[in-house]
Design a protein around this nucleic acid. Structure first.
Length: 241
DNA sequence: ACAAACCAAGCAGTGGTAAT
DNA sequence: ATTACCACTGCTTGGTTTGT
């Protein structure tokens, strides 16, 4: 076992028995190295921020503080994008830089196809410059509707909407969902290719009365077209910028 | 009995130089 | 341009000693 593998294994071993301790001698026997090498490994881990502490005395040894570190976590692409949306609100606020760094780590750590899916999904959730400073983004609208749209975006499926325009007139239409937009006027929008109008249309989520996902897969359309056709929408960037 | 500190040896990687 | 050799450096390791 090389040093890098041993460092990872050490942390996992100490975490598994926490809060009990394991002496350097025990660890040395387990990893077939000298006690001195284990002590150096522990020091290296401590320097890099792993919360390992030493308990002196006859029953002492090393232990890892579970309250100040996290075990490896797995996220689905949709969960990663959900984190992205939450982190994106940090913007230039305190810890905003760390929020973006954490987001890149989450996506980078995802296995190939899952990471690609997360990146693709993230590119379809975009943030728009708020009209007024300090504008709060409102809830998505009907809870079931937003979940249906998330599903359609994730699986690239045609959506069936019942939509009320600003005068309250209700229409039913099939749309090809393109991009989720958040921020403008404090509302969330779905930008989609509307088959009823045969053009790009913007749907405010709180005006969607009902939505369902069809089995039909959306044809490929360039992503840029969904946003550039929308007036007054100044896109801040995608979640992974 | 334990962790911590110091020291020396072995090894791999790197850069410079000469030979082909 | 490529290959071989050498010296240097840094990393890793084990042994010993010291302090708690």
């Amino acid at each position: 076992m090389n040093r890098t593998d041993r460092l990872y294994a050490l942390v996992e071993d100490l975490r598994a028995i926490s809060p009990r301790c394991r002496s350097a001698r025990q660890l040395a026997e387990r990893f077939e190295v000298s006690v001195r090498t284990i002590e150096r490994d522990i020091a290296a881990l401590q320097e890099s921020g792993v919360p390992i502490y030493a308990e002196p005395g006859r029953s002492g040894g090393y232990a890892v503080d579970k309250n100040h570190s996290l075990p490896p976590l797995n996220f689905t692409p949709a969960e990663a994008v959900a984190i992205a949306i939450a982190l994106s609100r940090a913007g230039d606020q305190p810890f905003g830089r760390q929020a973006r760094s954490a987001l890149r780590k989450v996506v980078a750590a995802m296995p190939g196809s899952e990471g690609e899916l997360a990146r693709e999904l993230a590119s379809r959730v975009q943030l728009v410059a708020p009209v007024e400073t300090g504008e709060e983004i409102q809830p998505l609208g009907r809870a079931g509707v937003s979940r249906v749209i998330e599903d359609a975006l994730l699986r690239r499926r045609v959506l069936r909407l019942d939509y009320a325009d600003r005068k309250g007139a209700l229409t039913s239409r099939d749309v090809e969902p393109g991009v989720f937009l958040g921020g403008r006027g404090g509302f969330w929008y779905l930008v989609a290719w509307c088959r009823l109008r045969d053009d790009v249309r913007v749907f405010r989520l709180d005006r969607i009365a009902s939505a369902s996902v069809s089995d039909e897969r959306c044809p490929d359309r360039p992503l840029e077209g969904y946003v550039t056709d929308v007036p007054d929408m100044i896109v801040h960037g995608t979640l992974l910028d």
